[in-house]
């Protein structure tokens, strides 16, 4: 994972750089939007961590100019502003995620990984979620490098969850994906498939939560 950190607070930046380096991620740090722009122009960066309050050009301005140039690099915004509106405008301007200072470094790393994962999943066949990997071409599922045998419906369900991480899926959403129009299914069928899938995935970092009355949500806890 190649990360570019744009942050003008030296202390915070150094901590983040140290944490990410120890995690084995390549991270570059610049303290202004202008410098970030020049790096983005030449190097391949997988995720951009962007502080809003920067000397000179603000983080929002950089984000806006990136998006206007059709640059789709995942961007995670850091904001310290008290106004909650900042979050909304960040997302409106095309940020992929945001964190409000102060935050846990662990949380920051996890969010970055999720962004990279989502981006890679679009191009690669291989999806990595913590200790779980899934190849969408061969439909091979591995937990801790060990292949796990899954039924086709379970694979379909897993793929659905992996492509919709951290999002609420209703029972209907899942059923529509798992069954054709003409296939009759009982409401319990989805539940049963999920129970089996959970059992198979025990020990993985993928958690599938059931929210009664609302649906299901998959989350990678790493």
């Amino acid at each position: 994972m190649r990360v570019l950190l744009t942050e003008d607070n030296q202390g915070l930046a150094q901590s983040i750089v140290q944490y990410f380096s120890e995690m084995g991620h390549a991270i570059d740090w610049v303290d202004s939007a202008e410098k970030a722009e020049s790096i983005l122009a030449h190097d391949t960066i997988e995720v951009l961590i962007l502080d809003v309050n920067l000397p000179g050009k603000s983080g929002f301005e950089l984000l806006t100019s990136l998006r206007s140039r059709k640059n789709s690099i995942p961007v995670l915004i850091l904001t310290a502003r008290a106004e909650v509106d900042d979050r909304v405008s960040a997302l409106d301007l095309g940020a992929d995620d945001y964190l409000v200072k102060p935050f846990d470094l662990r949380e920051l790393a996890a969010r970055c990984r999720a962004l990279v994962r989502r981006e890679r999943g679009k191009s690669d066949n291989e999806i990595h979620c913590g200790n779980l990997s899934f190849n969408s071409a061969t439909k091979v599922v591995k937990v801790n490098q060990e292949t796990i045998e899954l039924r086709p419906r379970e694979v379909q369900m897993l793929e659905l969850f992996l492509t919709h991480l951290d999002r609420m899926l209703t029972k209907d959403d899942i059923a529509n994906r798992l069954y054709n129009f003409d296939e009759a299914y009982t409401p319990n069928a989805v539940e049963q498939t999920l129970t089996r899938l959970r059992k198979q995935l025990q020990g993985s970092t993928l958690i599938i939560k059931t929210v009664r009355g609302l649906g299901y949500l998959a989350h990678v806890h790493d």
């Binding site: 951290d166 999002r167 609420m168 958690i207 939560k209 059931t210 929210v211 009664r212 009355g213 609302l214 949500l217 989350h219 806890h221």
Partner: peptide, 23 residues
Amino acid sequence: LQDVITQAVRDYAHMDIEFEYVP
């Protein structure tokens, strides 16, 4: 409510908490 619950479920996914929603 769905937004708030989704957010909470995600944030507390690692904890053994069952969320329920009664529409």
